[in-house]
Design a protein around this nucleic acid. Structure first.
Lengths: 184, 184
DNA sequence: CCGAATTATGCAATAAATTGCATAGCCACA
DNA sequence: TGTGGCTATGCAATTTATTGCATAATTCGG
């Protein structure tokens, strides 16, 4: 159960509402994680029941009221313990790879188009994360310890993304050649 | 529902039993996918019920009997249709990234050890996949179309892995420096 | 003959994630 | 006044994945 710990991690420094968490996820953890608001609200209830979070209603003007969530001492402890524990490497499990195993003369242009689409999506993400890196992580050696960890995760994501872009380019060229020889 | 399509993909050329599928998954799709035998057997039943697979008991000598599964015409069609359809990019969702967001003086050596462990695991996988690449995909331009797709997936996985190894090395150095300055 | 390893298949309970639906406050614009 | 968009929270149903358990045939070494 890692989503719960991702949520607690996001709450380490700031208290947040479910809605804010959903957004924060896309921004700060977006290269690694996406969670729907439904999932987040459900998890927030569970964590509150366990005593790892506490909630507080906040009245807002100009917007509907919200409920902010804050890490408790027990939550902090549980999180630290989880960090210490074992974890397993996760596979990509992306449909794209399975689809490529089905490459044929029929679908080659379709799959090429899909790679183009993925490339564009990744470009957008990278643009965002590269901006974050330059703004807030430009001098990694002088960051406080926790930010150093975030930095490492960030560059892992950025490099993975750049690597993917490069693969897309080469794959598209390769597929174009394959398409030509097939129809020649 | 991609596992079902991954299974059908594995059955494109060979008929296989659930047990064999579980193994084949680790070998041929291992960089992208892992599925437990329980999941695979369940999925095989579903696919057979849908008429996308047919099964046949096979008596073996020296081993317990098995039940092999074969793609039907309807299965082939459904698979081709799925390949044509939309798909979304999947995030990594690996605990390691979340853990790094929790880096502290307390856990820095623990997390370093975990990265060392990951590095080793990835080395093992890469060794296997690099061997496959050299043996069967050494001359990608002359492969038949379907094998070209597999080749692209394979090099995507290999590069991702190599990229990860490099990140591990740099991260470990960075963490070592951080640990020294923290205790200095 | 016994135990361990390998081959082979499966059920049940739980957890996690997706999809669809529902509600409601507030703002801006026409 | 109504419509659309953003903010905000949630339920319910279904699908997908994990974990633990259970069974059984066969081989091989001790």
């Amino acid at each position: 159960m890692a989503l719960s710990h991702a949520i607690m991690t996001a709450l380490l420094e700031d208290e947040m509402s479910g809605y804010e968490l959903a957004k924060a996820f896309d921004v700060t953890l977006g290269l690694f994680w996406h969670a729907s608001h439904q999932q987040i609200y459900k998890e927030l209830h569970k964590l509150t029941d366990k005593g790892w979070l506490e909630k507080e209603p906040v009245v807002q003007q100009g917007k509907p009221d919200k409920i902010v969530h804050r890490l408790t001492g027990a939550g902090r402890e549980a999180l630290a313990e989880w960090v210490w524990g074992e974890s397993r490497m996760q596979e990509a499990k992306d449909d794209l790879w399975v689809k490529l195993y089905n490459l044929s003369a029929d679908n080659i242009s379709r799959l090429s188009a899909e790679i183009v689409q993925r490339r564009e999506e990744m470009m957008g993400r990278l643009y965002l994360y590269e901006k974050i890196r330059r703004r807030h992580y430009d001098d990694p050696e002088s960051l406080p310890i926790r930010r150093k960890g975030i930095y490492l995760a960030l560059i892992a994501g950025i490099r993975q993304g750049e690597n993917f872009l490069q693969w897309c380019d080469e794959a598209l060229e390769f597929l174009a050649r394959a398409e030509n020889t097939a129809t020649a």
